[in-house]
Design a protein around this nucleic acid. Structure first.
Lengths: 144, 144
DNA sequence: GAGAATTAGTTTGATATCAACTCATTTCTA
DNA sequence: TAGAAATGAGTTGATATCAAACTAATTCTC
């Protein structure tokens, strides 16, 4: 029973991988006072047209109420701005501010470098960590 | 810049997959008043010898302080018991109670059925969702 | 066009998550 | 063996996460 769940459950394995990767990227983003999730959220606002919450929440795979909460610390820091949609006053447009964009541009190279390190680690581990077709190895995924 | 992160970042994709899968399994475990994480935690205690926190936290890929917190609601419900380790009084042994085991045994078939549904969905989507070797498709992974 | 149904977000209350700090115990070392 | 270093957990404060219940605005229907 345990072996089934721990060894094969995609949910179990994904949660575990998510924790390990979150810590890893949280570490590299710490100088910017950003978490991996805040980085992803800000990045998802960098589009020609400011998206609404209904655009962004599914894009991040999260509940709308989670997004509502996640916006607040970033809004307090003036990294984004929330406005009422002109066309549909129920909707909220999420705008990346100049400060938000500037921060993203500083964080991006750091993300890129870390992701390259991660890729290299995964390639090295490829054979060992792909028992079930789930190519997320976690056991050896601590900081390289 | 955005395309890089959203399209290729293993961290982004894993967090997103983790959210979607967590909701999916939370839904099927709701009749047992368990979350996917609580199910996994209880399952990880089902061993011949009661493990310590230092055994379980890395097994779940989580910080020790997270585990401390996660134990509390389950302990309140008498699904597990925490005792001081005889050999090393710093350590804590995590024991699955009879009630905890009984609950796991009722929840297991539900987990199994859901996991089979998930597998089937993934097989069907295989070609479409494996652009980068990360076989976690999320876009179409809502409840089947 | 008025009332019903739908859609967009927010609030609340619970659990989850981590880093940094602290406390207790054990192990190491001079 | 006494003091130092290392180890195992707990605490605190902040953010993350969701479901359920709620409010406001829009769309649908008769």
């Amino acid at each position: 029973m345990t072996a089934d769940v721990a060894g094969r459950c995609l949910c179990f394995r994904t949660q575990r991988a998510a924790r390990v990767l979150a810590r890893r990227f949280d570490t590299v983003f710490r100088p910017f006072n950003l978490t991996n999730g805040q980085f992803s959220l800000l990045m998802s606002l960098y589009r020609p047209e400011a998206p609404t919450m209904s655009d962004v929440a599914p894009f991040l795979g999260m509940d709308r109420s989670t997004l509502t909460a996640a916006l607040k610390p970033l809004e307090r820091r003036d990294l984004l701005e929330v406005t009422v949609d002109k066309e549909d006053r129920r909707g909220r447009r999420l705008h990346l501010t100049a400060a938000g964009l500037a921060l993203l541009e500083r964080a991006y190279p750091v993300w890129k470098a870390e992701h390259d390190r991660l890729d290299a680690a995964l390639v090295a581990l490829d054979a060992a960590i792909d028992p079930d077709g789930l190519r997320i190895g976690v056991e050896a995924l601590g900081r390289t």
